[in-house]
Design a protein around this nucleic acid. Sequence first.
DNA 1: ATACATACC
DNA 2: TACTGGTATGTAT
Length: 917
Amino acid sequence: MTAGRRSRSHAPLCTSHNGRTGREIKQASPAPSDFNENRMANGTVSTNGEGFLSRMALNDNKAGMEGLDRDKINKIIMETSKGSRFYENELKREQQVNQRIEKMMLQKAQITEQQLKKAQAQVERVALELERSRDLSRVIVHVDMDAFYAAVEMRDCPELKDKPMAVGSMNMLSTSNYHARKYGVRAAMPGFIAKKLCPNLVIVPPNFDKYRAVSAEIREIFADYDPHFQSVSLDEAYLDFTDHLEQRQSWPESSRTHRYSATSSASVEQQTERLQEEVLEVKDLSPVLFEDSPSSSPRFLGSEGVIAVEVFGTSVEEAVKEMRFRIQQKTMLTASAGIAPNQMLAKVCSDKNKPNGQFRLPSTREAVMDFIQNLPVRKVSGIGKVSEKMLNALEISSCSHLGQQMSLLSLLFSETAWHHFMQISLGLGSTFIARHEERKSISTERTFKELSKIEEQLSLCRELCEDLAEDMKKEGLKGKTVTLKLKNVNFEVKTRALTLAYAVATVDEIFAVARDLLKTEIENESPQPLRLRLMGVRISAFVSLDDKKPLQKSIIGFLQPGKSDSTGITQEMHQKLEKEQISNHTIQTSCFGGPPPMHKCQKEEGIPWQIKQKGSEGGQISDQQSFFQRAHAKRLQLLAERSSTQDEGQRENASEMTPINIHAENSLESSVKVHRSTASGCFENDIVSSTVAHPSTSGCSNSVSTSLTCPVCFRQVETTDLNVFNGHIDQCLSTASGKPNQIALSDSESDLDLDIDHKDCVVVKNCNKECRVKEEKEKNSKDLESKIVFPQEAQCSSKKYFDQMLLPNRGDNSTDDSDKGSILICPVCQLTQDTDDLTIFNHHVDLCLNQEVLHKLRGQTSSSINPPSLLKSKAVDRAHLLPRQASKGKSKRRDSPPSPCSKRVKGPHNTIDKFFR
DNA sequence: ATACATACC
DNA sequence: TACTGGTATGTAT
């Protein structure tokens, strides 16, 4: 089905080296022998060279495809496709995949026993750590409407009910109903092929507005169970039922009772009619809809059976049934659901009893492992055709194989990839349902009949730019990178991008760039014309609109004297920090006026994050870091508060603003409190400048003003006496660190989160999960205070947090971080790690961060598990952990100034004077 | 930063 | 006749 606007990200296996020129590969060399004769998980037998293309064959991964005559279907597909340009291109791509596999097999052949053994040890360590991170406490639900678009069309056109039908066109189908699936007709299949498979197939053109409307209806229901649900597409979402269930336990029956009646737009008469029908229908379906539920048959109030009512229990299953029931009542469409301890599993589970069913995987390790054992890897979201094929080549088709071959996989695949595999093999997945992040790109593309005339190409390009500019305007976006996408009549795709020094948004601006890119391509091909079948334009590298105005020096500016304006990168960070500060100031001055532009960058933040349990005596260096950590934590807490508020606002599409009142005393309880009321918006620089007295950046000594701004609470302290000022800050900090639980627990919407910024630092952000972690851990380890630890020499070869971030510190604080044998404290869970092996420690940190943080950093919207990439890359780097900065990442990391902590001079007090040096 | 590839719906 | 469109992100260069 066509994805909604924000589809989730699944990382891919990717390779890029392809030395192909045009289409010379006519005779595909036979695929290497020994890996291609397996029966593929999709049932095709790959016969060398000739025969089925795994990428063309029927994908019967989805529900409703059981018991089909695959061979026959594939034969028709192949016959219909054969000889087409599309087919030829697929053949070519297939060969590329085969070559990759061949390479992989060669690599495999060269692996020595010793290497394997070493890998084995590594894998075991990671496995152990992953195991320790297992969290079975959340109840995650994945809901998925059944054959959504098709179901909507069938609902609205009863004639279609008994017919095989699909939504789409002769060129492409979005989805098909279950009747059609029996013929092998499925989503992403061209209509004309579907017609060959099922001549009676009715193809209905899509009505996206209608689907969107229905989607809005079901989302309203989702929100009742998890206001923070994450939609994957119009018809699909992840929900965290944990909190709902907790509350549900004490709900009276009346709150769990739902009527058999639709409150939709239908007339009363229709509704009555529908109601009668539905009662029957639901009863009919009850084996599925209400399976094994004692209270499951509809309860009729009144013997006439006019008003039917359903009471649902308090268990997860009952709650999910209730949700599905309500969906059905409201939309006359059915949904399926999966219940499991994490997203990855929930997703698989929702497929299990599709359509109109649900499946719960119990939250025990045993159940999970059993469930995983025979699960085909292809069923896991993120493992697509190519990954599957590569794994199949290694004789891995089920998740148990995956586990058995981990050491081999760790040698053949990138770290990202094998970690991902490992998580799958252990049945691990995200337990934190991430909010949607801001979009990162926007694009429009069109397929058409061959277009070879330059003028036509240019005018089409212009048209696309017009469309794009309109979309940009709607969303209030501006971006610096323009990408032109071209697909020629042979289905070969090219992208050409250009990044400008400034952000663009208007038609003319975009077109100016796109046109140049297009012209270059035309020239490169001349005298041959470009024979295009598709053109697209995309904009990325968004810049928040208020970036245009020059901003004040931020706190970081004076904390990092001289650095703030030196590089573009620093500048950029600087601005981001500025923004944060602005918002804090705005908060402080009580004029937080509601959501700033949706795509405002606000997440990046730098903070040192090595945290150590505080010993009885105060550490010297650590105090500074502690200061920063806490100061940032404090500010980010506010930030988190703000952005969750924004998010809320966006989600509810509310015009109502949610200002945050911060009280001077910084009592956490009060500062975290969100008061709903209206306030005039003010994200304006002048307000900030009028309220804040910043020490000058360059001088880093006293500013001209008579007050200093507290870096923790951002209030002005009316003094120039640093002792007084320091006293204030200390107080702020003690308030901030003294009651971490309040930060964490104050409000589910304002929970904090640890995060890693692009400079290898952790910051605090919105993240419910983190708070849970924090909360739990802190129950166990009372009176812990944040402090920095300097682990011993960074000996781990895998580039991870510490060896990258500690080096500067070591330089600055050579005495103190010689803390040999110092205990390593996980900065996330704050628990002592009984290891001094940084690799192991890093793995632990990974794990801790993994669920709630990493996937967010990756910008993922659902699964925290990032699918693998292909062959092992030399430098794993932390790029895979920090994709948000990925593009800027490498150079940035190199160029960016060391984290604030490394810039600081050590001193005994966590006071401000040291920052003014 | 750019180009390509994989993945999802 | 005829094989999408939108978004994210991993990997190599």
